[in-house]
Simulated assay, not measured.
Amino acid sequence: MSKVIKYSDEPIGDLKLVTDFLPSPEELSLKKENTKVTISLSSESVVYFKEVAKKHHLQYQTIIRTLLDEYVAHQKRR
C-alpha cells in the first residue's frame, strides 16, 4: 500500500444501534453427524465422481455423500 490514508477528527453524524440479526455459530453450522463406512464402488463411478469434484473444486466423497442424502430425503417424502 503506497497510498497514505489521512484521518480527520470530524463528527461522524447520527449513529443508530442495530440489533444483532445474525444467526449464532451453532445455527450456521451445516455439518451433520456422519458415520464412517467402508464401501466398494466401481472404478468407473469413482473416476466419474473425482472428475466432477475436480471441476467444482470439491472432494469426491462430499459429492457422493450429498447424492446419498438427497436420495434418502426423496425416499422419505414418498
Rank of each mutant, 00 (worst) to 15 (best):
K50I: 00
K76R: 13
V72M: 09
S24T: 14
Y60E: 00
Y60D: 00
S8R: 11
K6N: 10
T38K: 08
S2C: 09
H74E: 13
K16T: 05
F21M: 14
E10C: 07
V18R: 10
R77S: 09
I39T: 13
D9R: 13
I39W: 05
K76A: 10
F21P: 13
I39E: 09
T35P: 02
I64G: 03
E27Y: 12
K54C: 01
V46M: 03
H57Q: 06
K31H: 14
L41A: 09
L68T: 02
E70R: 08
T38P: 00
P25S: 11
E26D: 04
E33D: 05
D14L: 08
R78D: 06
V4I: 15
M1I: 04
V37N: 04
D20P: 02
K16F: 10
V72L: 07
F49D: 00
V37H: 04
L41T: 02
Y71G: 10
Y48K: 04
L58N: 13
S43H: 10
F21R: 15
S43T: 07
V18L: 10
E70D: 12
L58Y: 11
D69L: 08
K55E: 07
K31P: 06
S45L: 02
T19W: 07
H56P: 01
K55W: 03
I12L: 08
K55I: 01
F49Q: 01
Q59W: 08
G13Y: 01
D69C: 05
Y48G: 01
S45G: 00
Q61S: 11
L15C: 05
Y7A: 14
P11Q: 05
K76Q: 11
T19L: 08
L30E: 09
S43M: 04
R65S: 09
K50S: 01
P11V: 03
P23C: 02
V37I: 15
V4G: 06
S2A: 14
I5E: 13
H74N: 12
R78M: 06
R65A: 14
V52S: 10
I5G: 03
E26Q: 11
K36F: 11
H56N: 13
L15H: 03
V4W: 05
E33H: 07
S40L: 14
M1V: 06
I39P: 01
Q75K: 14
K50Y: 00
H74G: 07
K50G: 01
D14E: 10
K32V: 11
